[in-house]
Design a protein around this nucleic acid. Structure first.
Length: 260
DNA sequence: ATGGTAGCAGAGCTA
C-alpha cells in the first residue's frame, strides 16, 4: 500500500505528469498541495478516468489541497476545525477504512518576523491543537503534506547559509517538535535515520542541478501506522522531468494487513 | 549578486 504527498505547484500545469505517475506507480492515497484551482475547475473527470476518487478544496490563484484515492473516502473534512472561515484553503482530511489521513499545506511564512510568519506559527498552533483530538479519535492516523519546515540541519543542504531563516527558524522547528510530541512520528526520518534527502529545490539559481534542497514535505504517522511502515522515499524523477514542480513526491510504503 | 525562476494573471504577489 502506497501513500504519497506532492506539492504540485498548479494542478492545471502538472496534471499530465500526475496522471502519468498515477498510472505507473499506482499509489493508493495521494495528498496534493498548491492545486491553485477553484473547485469548479478541479479535474475530477480526468482523475476518475484514471481510477481515483478525490476530496478537494481550492480558491482562486493560491493554495488549494486534495486527497486522491483508489478506494472511496469517508468522513471528508475540508477545513481545519476552528479555521472554517479562513479563506486560505490548506487542509483536507478523509478516512479510508480504519486509516484517517490529514493532508496539509502549511503556510510558507515568507520571512522570519513578517505577518505571514506570525500567521504560519498561529496556523501550526491550531493544527497542533486539532491533532491532539484527532489522534485520540483515530489511532491509525497519517498527517502529511508540505509543512514548510526542515526539522533538523540534516534536512538542509547548507545549514550555515540557512541558519535562522524561514523554513528552519527555531520557532518553526519547535512547532514541528510539538507535532511529533503528539505521537506523530516522522516516517522518513524513522526509516532513514542518517540519510540526507530533500523534497524541495528552489526554481532559482539552478538549485536542483546543484542539489541545493530542503526536506520540508513530510508524512507523520501514529505508532500503529509507523509499525506498518516498510519504506519511505523521495520520487526524485518527477523533479527531473520537463516543466517540473519545485517539489518531488514523498512516498510511504505500508503493510496493508496492519492497516485494515 | 538582497539576485535568481515559475505560476497566476495580465501588474505584482507568492513561493
Amino acid at each position: 500500500m502506497l501513500i504519497a504527498t506532492w506539492n504540485v505547484n498548479s494542478l492545471r500545469v502538472r496534471l499530465p505528469q500526475l496522471l502519468d505517475w498515477l498510472g505507473q506507480a499506482r499509489p493508493d492515497i495521494v495528498g496534493l498541495q498548491e492545486t491553485k484551482l477553484v473547485d469548479g475547475d478541479f479535474p475530477e473527470a480526468e482523475l476518475a478516468a484514471a481510477g481515483y476518487h478525490a476530496v478537494y478544496v481550492g480558491q482562486p490563484t493560491y493554495n488549494g489541497v486534495a486527497l486522491l484515492s483508489r478506494q472511496a473516502a469517508s468522513d471528508p473534512l475540508t477545513a481545519l476545525p476552528g479555521r472554517e472561515h479562513d479563506p486560505q484553503q490548506r487542509f483536507v482530511a478523509a478516512s479510508y477504512g480504519a486509516l484517517r489521513v490529514i493532508n496539509v499545506y502549511v503556510p510558507n511564512g515568507s520571512a522570519v518576523g513578517s505577518d505571514k510568519y506570525v500567521y504560519k506559527l498561529a496556523w501550526l498552533a491550531d493544527l497542533s491543537r486539532y491533532l491532539l483530538a484527532a489522534s485520540a479519535q483515530s489511532p491509525k492516523l497519517l498527517v502529511m503534506g508540505d509543512f514548510n519546515i526542515a526539522p533538523t540541519d540534516l534536512d538542509v543542504h547548507d545549514p550555515a547559509a540557512w541558519e535562522g531563516q524561514v523554513l528552519v527558524s527555531p520557532a518553526e522547528r519547535a512547532a514541528f517538535v510539538e507535532l511529533v510530541s503528539l505521537g506523530l512520528h516522522d516516517t522518513f526520518r524513522h526509516l532513514n535515520p542518517q540519510t540526507q534527502a530533500f523534497t524541495w529545490w528552489d526554481y532559482r539559481a539552478a538549485a536542483f542541478r546543484r542539489n541545493q534542497g530542503l526536506r520540508i514535505d513530510h508524512i507523520l504517522a501514529t505508532q500503529p501506522v509507523l509499525a506498518a511502515s516498510r519504506a519511505c522515499r523521495v520520487e526524485i524523477d518527477l523533479r527531473r522531468s520537463e516543466r517540473p514542480s519545485d517539489h518531488a513526491p514523498l512516498v510511504l510504503e505500508l503493510d496493508p494487513a496492519a492497516i485494515v
